[in-house]
Design a protein around this nucleic acid. Structure first.
Lengths: 208, 208
DNA sequence: TGATTAAGAATGAATGTTCATTCATGTTTT
DNA sequence: AAAACATGAATGAACATTCATTCTTAATCA
């Protein structure tokens, strides 16, 4: 199980080692897993299906990931980081609060449109039991900068201060997620005007 | 699969029939299922565990429910009706809008506190693939009265009218659900003041 | 240059486990 | 004693994971 026998009897010469090349199948597996898990749920998709979608033998997955659980966790963390970068990266915090709010809202909507698999996977709840400590930690850390921003806006009197920033952020995020979910579930269809109006309503929620 | 053979050859007399007494095990099964599904998710809990929690043999469940899927659907419908009654039943629509809003919010919070299993089960997403047409239909119908109320408040100018009532309702519901979820996930803890403030913020969302 | 070969990489059939569902048998009710 | 009920061990299907085998790669040598 753990006899790596790395540098045992190599006192002689080349040290060249044979650190291989491939770095490609791993990506293919992650990409395929994202797609099929987003569509069928982690519990709904057997590993052979992931393998097939990645054009890889079933056993190959286990050369790159110890288990389904570990695969799910790596996927979660990878996506979490990418999403955070996409939503909050390169934001000019000097701009007016309302402009920032609109910009982030726009990015969130764009993300749900352009990367539906990634969005769906992260929104999925059925992978929660799989998540390990590192993933949970990351999830928590990822929110810190936005939380700080909410706090700053409260301090400047832009946002209402009768509730804690955590609560405010939770409300807005929940409203957004449920809006997108309602659309995907076919309960409503959203025009651009609807989405802008929803944004304005959430702004009202924040400012009182 | 569907031969109920109810009242076939009973043209004679007593009509007494033998419709037995038990009506009890069925309830015990539903109640146990609600609890364990709420805790472990529908996919996470084997039928023998449901049976054990209901103090019933595994096979007995199948005397009352054709399959796990049907059990989940009956449970879903039963709970949906009960919840709707609890949240919106006996509401005096003549009262001021703000009072009604506060009352419903209060009921929602009380429900999450007093019937955490029922709330959790309904909030769960992993039973969604199990739901049949009847359940989906019921889910839709259950929203109609509240939607009508949102519309009425828009018409009276109490609620903002720059977004459709469906969208408004979706936003508020999502905000509430995520607030409770954040608490259960341990991300935040909610004081009564937090909950009241969240309610006020949602009211702001509705009124602009 | 082309041949040889050993180590890594890939594979998918085989394995062991978990679970929904069934059914042969026992128990209770009428 | 017949009819309805209840039971849980047995069944078969689905799944995560393993492993004996085959394929690739690239270092070495003729």
């Amino acid at each position: 199980m753990n006899n790596h026998s790395k540098t045992a009897n190599k006192a002689q010469a080349p040290v060249r080692a044979v650190r291989p090349r491939i770095k490609d199948k791993r990506s293919a597996i992650l990409q395929a897993a994202l797609r099929v898990f987003a569509e069928g749920g982690v519990n709904g998709v057997p590993m052979p299906v992931v393998a097939q979608q990645a054009n890889v033998g079933t056993g190959t997955i286990y050369r790159y990931f110890e288990s389904k659980e570990l695969l799910v966790n790596e996927l979660f963390r990878e996506q979490k980081l990418a999403i955070n970068q996409r939503l909050y990266g390169d934001l000019d915090l000097q701009r007016p609060a309302r402009e920032l709010f609109d910009e982030v809202w726009r990015r969130m909507v764009a993300f749900t449109r352009e990367a539906p698999h990634a969005y769906r996977f992260m929104e999925l709840q059925d992978h929660r039991p799989y998540l390990d400590e590192a993933s949970r930690q990351l999830e928590h850390e990822a929110l810190a900068p936005i939380l700080a921003q909410y706090r700053a806006l409260q301090k400047r009197g832009v946002f209402r201060s009768d509730l804690r920033a955590e609560v405010l952020m939770t409300l807005v995020w929940g409203a957004f997620v449920n809006l997108i979910k309602a659309e995907r579930d076919g309960h409503i269809s959203l025009s651009d005007a609807d989405i802008d109006a929803a944004r304005d309503a959430c702004w009202s929620l924040c400012t009182g």
